[in-house]
Design a protein around this nucleic acid. Sequence first.
DNA 1: TATTGATCATGC
DNA 2: GCATGATCAATA
Length: 229
Amino acid sequence: MRAALKATAPAAPRTEAQLLARAHALAGRTIGELGGEAGIALPPDTRRDKGIIGDLVEWALGADAGGADAPDFTELGVELKTIPLGPGGKPKESTFVCTIHLDDAGDLEWAQSRACRKLARVLWVPVEAGPELPLAQRRIGAAVLWTPSEAQEAALRADWEELSGLIGEGQLDQITAHLGACLQVRPKAANARVRGNARDAGGAPVRTLPRGFYLRTSFTASVFAEPDA
DNA sequence: TATTGATCATGC
DNA sequence: GCATGATCAATA
């Protein structure tokens, strides 16, 4: 999504240090302040504008991918993810990673996968969340520029290989969000009637609900518990 | 109440 | 339709 941001965004950061400095400068600021600077009127809540916070932070930091299948900061190869934190500092929601190409999921290596590329370098920007907290009052927290530790990448890879393997074998019907210790497969569509291309166990084309990879909250919590991990 | 499955908005 | 940005809300 792309909100109707009226004000001019800052130029894309040229170095990771510059990006991180900008992100740190956002700590303590509110979504209301960002909305004002961007020149937009905030919606009353996020029910109809679920991506509004992500859009505002993208704008404030100078993300330049603009809806393309590329890192948010194209020159730096850094992906931006805002993450809602509850009162206890724990993630309140899972994190969408990418959609899954269901018709050729078995033909790829982890290292070349979209999931791996998206997660190779991520700037996590935590934002206070909770239905009791008005959108404009939600504060931005301390950003973390992250690369998976060896253990984290191994866990991600194991889940990805298991899930991609099942999809590649046409076992999509057996995949639920219960699978995967850190990475899970869930629907990613406008509604449950949407169909996309996949393959059955015999390799024949079938139409099914589009899916995406998501990070469990227990995994993203480890990002903030071990910034250097 | 945590989690899974479903959904909302927008651009091309 | 699929990519971007995610959160909602029914259910276990």
